[in-house]
Design a binder for these strands. Sequence first.
DNA 1: TCGCGACATGTCAACACAGGAATGTACGAT
DNA 2: ATCGTACATTCCTGTGTTGACATGTCGCGA
Lengths: 178, 178
Amino acid sequence: MLGLLSAGPASGYDLLKTFELSLENVWPATQSQLYAELGRLSKEGLVRVAAEGPRGRKEYEITEEGRAELRHWLVEVPPTLTRRSDMLLRVFFLDQVGTDAARGYLERLAERAVHEHDQLLGIREFVIGQGDDALRLYGDIALEWGLRLTAAQRDWAEWAAGRIAALEHEKAGHAGAE
Amino acid sequence: MLGLLSAGPASGYDLLKTFELSLENVWPATQSQLYAELGRLSKEGLVRVAAEGPRGRKEYEITEEGRAELRHWLVEVPPTLTRRSDMLLRVFFLDQVGTDAARGYLERLAERAVHEHDQLLGIREFVIGQGDDALRLYGDIALEWGLRLTAAQRDWAEWAAGRIAALEHEKAGHAGAE
DNA sequence: TCGCGACATGTCAACACAGGAATGTACGAT
DNA sequence: ATCGTACATTCCTGTGTTGACATGTCGCGA
């Protein structure tokens, strides 16, 4: 929230739209959370109601304390490692469903990664040439992360499916020889 | 929980240890959650108390319904996309701290990725040759994911830091020419 | 035998989160 | 003129999550 407000004042509703449209991929938030958080931040003095608009609209702006807190968070607070991936958790228990279904699961993961990768490429085409170089830099960097992540996931899932297939053949060979 | 119990009966305490030691990276859980969940699963008939041991120890085992539910979850319920990365979220607001601090942030990300990568390599060395091939397959696959993810993160962060550095030079050049 | 550490479970308060319901206002198109 | 849509906020319920606290038992070494 502080990050978004650092670019200029906005209402809760504006922020909500931004979350839905642009930040949903890295940090989804619901409206209940948003408004609650605005209240909290405002109570802590990190944001302030700058103006009231038409339909009870409250335009918030970031305060100096808020800006300081944002900078502190950006450079001094260590990012948390991404944990909790149910996609990966399932892998641990894949032996419960047999090699065939396991391979299917991984193949579907690969397909999905390809699909997401394509979507990101589409976004890149769309934003190309928009905004000036300096402003687009960090957006590009984030987008590139998505591209590399989905590519890695595709490669990994295909590799894993291949390993399972190899094991299936090996077993089949043994069975045939017995 | 169902996944762990599918490998054999265990107490809540056992499961807790497993979470702490081996599953923490993909699905951390606290003890309160664990015991609460065991109670819930037991009420739903997905697990059952198989035996009672020394210190009030209750050994749970998975039921047929539980096994069915596990298989259902593994193959039919679509995995949720991993969202919410505060590491990536920060990137969007990095313009707030200037190119120098931004570059520092990405360089630290790269270092951390290298560190994690090394740790995973250590784990691989450790588990190599343990357990039979079929049993280790899925553990290997999960480990490989970690290796590829950390490698991708390192490459990406280094690439991004490079782009920022290039921009810094470009600006400096302009400034010098003016 | 006595005490400590590991075993083992249960409960509570506080907060984060998702989803939805309720409420109302302003604006633009017909 | 009015009606629908987008704007805009607040509240509520249920669940997930964390961390701390409470309670008690068993086994082993000094």
